[in-house]
Each structure stands twice: as C-alpha cells, then as structure tokens.
Write a protein that binds this DNA or RNA. Structure first.
Lengths: 236, 236
DNA sequence: GAGAAACTGTGTCTCGCAGACACGGTTTGT
DNA sequence: ACAAACCGTGTCTGCGAGACACAGTTTCTC
C-alpha cells in the first residue's frame, strides 16, 4: 500500500476536498464510479479500463487522473458505490433472524454485481458502506456472551460463507447460461475419473435440490453459534 | 471459457501428448509451472507474465506458447503445481478430526502461496490435486446420514471459510510486516468514526487472542454439522 | 485592475503486456 | 532423400497504466 492507502482513505472517507481556484470540475467522483460500475456490470471487472470509463463519460482517459490517483482507487470507489446499504434490523428480531437477513442481502449484492468478488480480493481500504455491513453483524451479536474478537470472527465467518457461495453460483451460472459449461466440463471429468474420486462421484450422482448451498451453510453456522451462545449464557 | 476449457482439461488431466517428429522439447510443463510459482511466490500473481516466466528459464516469451495455449492455462498449471497434496486421513479418526486436519492443511497451502487466493477466483477448470481435496471432505462425511448435495455443500462451506481466513490473514500480515499498515489504517479510521460504528469499535477495543479466527469459525461449522448429523442418525 | 497561483482537460510519450504470425533450423517417418 | 511435423525465435500489432508538459480558465492577492 504505502502512501496510496492515505489517498484511498481520503477518497472514501475524507471530506470532499474543495479547491477554490481554477475551472469548475466537470465530473464528480460519483459519476465516475457509476460509469465504472456500468462497465463492470456489463463486461466484468477485467474490462474496466481508464479508457473505457472515460469514454463512457465522453472524456479522455487522462482527465480521470484529475479525480482519482489511479485505477486501484477507482475500483475502491466502484465497490463503495455498488455495494448495497445493509438491511436495517427489524424491531424485535433476534440475532439469528438478523444474521439470516444480512446474509441474504449480501448474497444479493454479489449476485447483482458479480465483479465484486474480483474487486474485493486482497488487502484494501474498506469504505463506509462496507464497514456498515460489518457493524450490523457485530451489533446483532452484542449481548450474547461473546467476546469482541469472537464477534468479529463470527462476522468473518459469515462473510466468508456468503462469498464462497457467490463465487460458486457465479461459476455455475443460471441453468442454460454460457457459464453452465463449467458444470458440463466438471461432469465429464468426473465421469472419466470416477474411480479416483468415488465419494465426489457418488455425491454428485445423487439427485437433490440445487441452490440450497447458501442456506445449508448458513444454518450450520447459525446452529454452531447458537450452541456457543447457549453455553455462554448458561454459565455466567 | 468456450474452446479454451477443452485445452485446459487436456493440459491438467489429459495424457501428455507425445509428438513424434521434430526436435525434442527443451522444456516441460512442470518446469514452466514451477518457474511461474517461483515468480508468484516472490512478487505476487500480478507480476507473473510470460516474459518473466520465460526469462527465469532462459527462454523467450514466445517459446512458452509451444507448451501452453495462453496465460490462463499457465496459471491453471501453477495452481495445480502449488497446491499441496491433501492429508491422508489417519486410521480410525472420526469425521470431525479429519475435517479439522483438512482445514489446517488447506490454510497452510494458502499461507505458503498467498497468490492462490487471486488465482482461484472465478470459474475455472479444477485439476486432479484440487479435486482430491474435495474428495477428502466428501468422503469424510460419508455414512453419517447426509445427502450427496449436503456433503458437497459442507465442503463448499469449509473451503469458503478457510479461504476467508486466508484472505484476512494475508491482508493483515504477520505483526510488523508492511501489510500490517492495513491494521493501522483500519484503526485510525475506526477511531475517527467510532460514533457511526459503535459495535465494531467496542469489539476491536476489547483485547483478546488474535489468530483464533480459523479455529473459531471451524468449531462453529463443525458444531453445526454435528447437530445435523445427530438429528439424522437419531431418526432413520 | 493586473499578475500570479492554482486548477482543469488534453495530446503525446514511454513502458510492459498478450498474442498473432512468419521464418529458419531440426528431427523423424516414409 | 525428402517431406512432414515440430521447435525456438524475431517481429509486429493492439491495448493498458501512467508520467509529463501544455494551453485555457478561474480566483486570490497586491
């Protein structure tokens, strides 16, 4: 990161620097981020280039550098712009319902903007909206006997699961989609090497509802958390 | 993917095509993959280019294309080469111990080759070794009342968790490392916006053992699986 | 009011990358 | 012997990120 981290923090968190002299800027960070999101939604994150984003706004590539230090910061803005607002916890709902709703909404975000998976790998500065997601999980678990680090770990656990599911469902894609070739290829490979992978071969041969993966993992995690909470609240 | 998928499958799974005429190839897929891993280990996946990999082998960039159709396939080979062999389940150990060992070893793989996180996002063809990891989880869960899809979902759940933890631990890095700046930046941001994120602020303020995240999530998942298994085996 | 300072958008340039293609040299089958 | 198949290479195109200098515009200061 180095110095770039400071720039990114200022961009995502800081007060919008208000220069006084010179011509009025013709663009805004919001418009730039929105254009980037548009490109990424349509053609994937790899297709996002300064050229294309600038072209979409009828500007030249270099003009973007007046607003954004570099491509990494542009993507950080895109993430912050594309991520949904986390759901407000309904009044009187328990931690389990809150976390279930949270996971569903996060999965929706990933489904709407699959490139978020690519954009959020690796160390980076998180934005205000992204941090709000974390806040919701941690606060949903407040007051149930978990330590602070444990609440954070639980958040990482949940987020990791939703991510994993989103990655999987992007890879397979909706039935009949071009990405579904992935499943075909996988099926052929399994068929030819069933002897080396008997357990997997048997598991995929067995019929059963697809698309249950999110709920399945979620229920296991929540059951596991419930067991811990029960133990903690039973013996204070 | 398109046609490229077939090439990749042949490369990862297929019998090494043996041409008869012409000069002996001076390189092997193994050496090429190893050189790529070397570059990625040292400078990250982004630094892996045909130029650099070829240069490491004292060949020109274009000669690599005689062995590998393109960069995507090179990275697929690198993944298959860098991933460890999954641990063989010790005799007489239960599913819980097997899955614990599995997770620990997978986490080690990610720790040894952090770029695996970048290389394994998105749809792609899995190789034999990678599939062996899946086989181990599914077979560890054989015979405990779970359906095939459920066993697969459990594998995705576990793998997603290990991935998430690996991503987090790469972001923060070992104490004192350059990446630890991430934590400093995060701390400063939290300090300045504690009012908007009270739950997170409270959680991080609370002291407690770091690096427990892998085990914490793992124990929750395994507890959740245990509950399901108990329910299933109690009422056949 | 007149500079000067600061800022904006732009054209040009360099560098690195992926990949297409054609070429000469080499090995083997017929 | 000769042709087919294959190897390694040099060259070329196109695309991308980013540095830099430049002209035009707005505002602060004297």
């Amino acid at each position: 990161m180095g110095e770039a981290a400071n720039d990114t923090v200022r961009l995502l968190w800081g007060p919008p620097a208000k220069p006084t002299r010179g011509p009025k800027p013709a663009l805004t960070l919001e418009r730039i981020a929105a254009a980037g999101v548009e490109v990424a939604d349509a053609e994937g994150l790899a297709a996002v280039s300064m050229q294309k984003v600038a072209g979409l706004l009828d500007f030249t590539k270099m003009s973007l550098y007046r607003y954004v230090p570099g491509k990494a910061e542009l993507i950080a803005l895109m993430v912050e712009s594309a991520v949904d607002e986390p759901p407000r916890p309904a009044e009187g709902t328990g931690w389990r319902e809150q976390l279930t709703a949270w996971s569903g909404h996060l999965a929706d975000s990933f489904a709407r903007h699959p490139w978020l998976l690519d954009a959020t790998v690796g160390p980076r500065v998180v934005g205000p909206k992204e941090l709000t997601w974390l806040e919701r999980v941690v606060s949903a678990l407040d007051g149930h006997g978990l330590t602070g680090p444990e609440r954070m770990d639980a958040a990482v656990l949940l987020a990791g699961h939703v991510r994993g599911i989103a990655a999987q469902s992007r890879a397979t894609g909706p039935a009949g989609s071009p990405e579904a070739e992935f499943l075909t290829v996988f099926g052929l490979v399994m068929q030819q090497h069933a002897d080396r992978y008997p357990a997997v071969a048997a598991a995929v041969a067995e019929p059963g509802g697809r698309d249950q993966a999110l709920d399945f993992g979620l229920e296991r995690i929540l059951d596991g958390l419930a067991a811990l909470i029960e133990r903690r609240t039973a013996q204070p």
